[in-house]
Design a protein around this nucleic acid. Structure first.
Lengths: 185, 185
DNA sequence: CGCATTTTTGATACACGTCAATCTCCGTGG
DNA sequence: CCACGGAGATTGACGTGTATCAAAAATGCG
């Protein structure tokens, strides 16, 4: 028996300075934002399956970021079960977090096409399928413009690297395994 | 009594897949690299005072990244003292790590001048002083080119935002507090 | 001093940003 | 069932911030 919360794309999960629980992401894509100097929310980080969300509440009592679901996603309370907050599990979360940070950095370096492809690979599941976030969200994550994202994704679709189908009103995208090295020239 | 290791700029602290300890950064700037598909080291993350370095060895036995000192820096073994590996301290490290990830992301978005200024602010200590890493390292961190970094830093120096002096062969840069908002136009 | 490395500077090219005009998708109400 | 409207996606034309390439100047070091 386990309690699982399901959220739809576009739903706010929590806001900075709110009190609440920590979560483990089971499914879906979540963006974290901070308020910049101009009080506008600006992209800060990404959480995907396996990540711990909002663990800072256990220390500070409140969340540091705004969390927004970019696709439908599922969360379970964290830590899981009795006495599960072992040093071991925290250490694992710390290692994952540092790895995720490195991945995020890679999403914001190099040429535009490469960044988008890296993000797509990051979001693709074992079956080779993914649900793409909105163009604007992809743009915020990669520090590009939504027009640029649109051009790149249309290009990938036209070249057969991506194929999109719609199921129950949700766009499912299938990324074919491709030698992305050839995209460089 | 505490054991402190001091490393000079340019020294390798450890390499990916090596075995070793975890450290806390007391001082200085350290870059972490991963090997990309072409087996070239590429910038993955940054560690500065307060950060935990290489904690993944406690889990996997080996380091995940290459660590290179960008300025002179000081490290102490981590966890500190007997029984210091509490859930509390790990949780704090996790929260710091996630905050650092968000800062790194910010260093790679927006216009070039703003990124460099953000990095300078991140590296500035309480006295308003900092030691700048090499142009090429700043370029790798911000995903710009060393020529661009050179132009920007020269520009900041000429406009009086930064002043550089040399002490014992080390370039100390003093960053004056400035309304960086005015840099935008 | 002499050499290797890093930094600086200039001229030019291009990848992506910007702006504006459709187009597509969907929900709503007549 | 279709007209309407709003939001996101697409496309085109044009501008610009950095990259790129090349060469000189500064710095560090044996």
């Amino acid at each position: 028996m386990r309690c699982t919360w399901t959220l739809d794309a576009g739903e706010t999960i929590y806001q900075a300075n709110d009190a609440g629980l920590a979560w483990r992401v089971r499914n879906g894509v979540i963006r974290l934002d901070t308020m910049n100097a101009e009080k506008e929310p600006c992209f800060a980080s990404l959480a995907i399956a396996g990540d711990i969300l909002g663990c800072e509440t256990m220390l500070f009592g409140t969340y540091t970021f705004n969390a927004l679901a970019l696709t439908q996603c599922q969360l379970t309370p964290w830590p899981e079960g009795e006495g599960a907050l072992s040093g071991e599990s925290l250490l694992a979360s710390l290692a994952i977090s540092q790895k995720r940070a490195a991945d995020l950095v890679a999403l914001r370096g190099g040429q535009a096409v490469g960044r988008v492809i890296s993000l797509i690979q990051m979001l693709t599941d074992k079956t080779g399928q993914l649900v793409l976030p909105a163009r604007q969200d992809i743009a915020d994550i990669t520090d590009l413009r939504s027009e640029t994202i649109s051009r790149i994704i249309k290009g990938l679709e036209r070249s057969g690297v991506l194929a999109t189908t719609r199921i129950n009103g949700v766009h499912l995208t299938r990324g074919y395994v491709v030698d992305f090295g050839s995209q460089k020239s």
